[in-house]
């Protein structure tokens, strides 16, 4: 069961839900599947661990990454590159937009209303049930509503990203998957895929998932940890 995502895909979710790690790995995964991919780092609210940290890994796979100008990469400033509007108007096979966290991070999407007008958009909410505020269905729905209000775009799919980083167990993945599956049923939105840390992929029973699985090779790690090879297949 493959991930069937093309066109303009916007990744949103709670602060710290794993949007960037999901975006980077999704981009690499789709690129390996032969799809032309462009990624825009639209995280204007976070200052550390952004898509731009994975710039080299993405570029080495031939994925175009749209960032603010080089001299502003470490600036604590919300910079929206005009190239983002350009990439929306002339989208590649998969145009992936990694938005910032919460409704605050999604506000910038409203500024892209003109180029997005008339386009078919998939806006997907990343959910990690091991994070504060999204450990209940109610919490997930609350942030969904806030993001939709701020971005003026409806969310139309869910991505499960249950993990405790290095301490994730196979049981956590199953429990987290059951949570996001339940969430998907309750809010009547498709579960596009769920993630499994790359190092655990061989130990999980893939038949337990009724949706596609995206392996995550962590890219945004502190300096004492090794970055895993991006785009490794299941």
């Amino acid at each position: 069961m493959g991930i069937n995502l093309e066109g303009i895909v916007i990744i949103v979710g709670n602060y710290g839900s794993g949007k960037t790690e999901v975006s980077v790995n999704l981009a690499a995964h789709q690129k390996k599947a032969g799809i032309d991919v462009r990624v825009a780092d639209l995280d204007l609210v976070n200052s550390y661990f952004r898509t731009r940290e994975a710039r080299k890994a993405l570029e080495s796979l031939g994925i175009d990454l749209v960032l603010p100008p080089e001299q502003y990469l470490q600036a604590d400033l919300p910079i929206l590159s005009p190239r983002v509007a350009g990439m929306i108007m002339q989208p590649s096979q998969l145009t992936l937009i990694d938005a910032g966290g919460d409704d605050v991070g999604a506000t910038v999407l409203a500024a892209l209303a003109d180029p997005l007008k008339g386009k078919t958009i998939r806006m997907l909410q990343v959910v990690n049930p091991f994070r504060p505020f999204t450990d209940t269905v109610q919490g997930c729905l609350k942030i969904r509503k806030a993001i939709e209000a701020a971005s003026k775009i409806p969310i139309n799919g869910i991505i499960g990203n249950p993990n405790l980083i290095d301490e994730t167990t196979v049981d956590d993945i199953y429990t987290g998957y059951e949570f996001v599956r339940g969430l998907s049923e309750q809010c009547d939105l498709p579960l596009e895929f769920t993630t499994v840390p790359g190092e655990l992929i061989s130990t999980v029973d893939l038949h337990r998932f009724s949706c596609p699985v995206l392996p995550i090779q962590r890219q945004l790690v502190p300096p004492w940890k090794e970055i895993r090879q991006l785009g490794t297949a299941v």
């Binding site: 710290g16 091991f130 994070r131 504060p132 450990d135 993990n163 405790l164 980083i165 301490e167």
Partner: peptide
Amino acid sequence: KVLMKGNEAIGE
């Protein structure tokens, strides 16, 4: 366990 950013964990 929960997954938290240092700043959030300090607040909690």
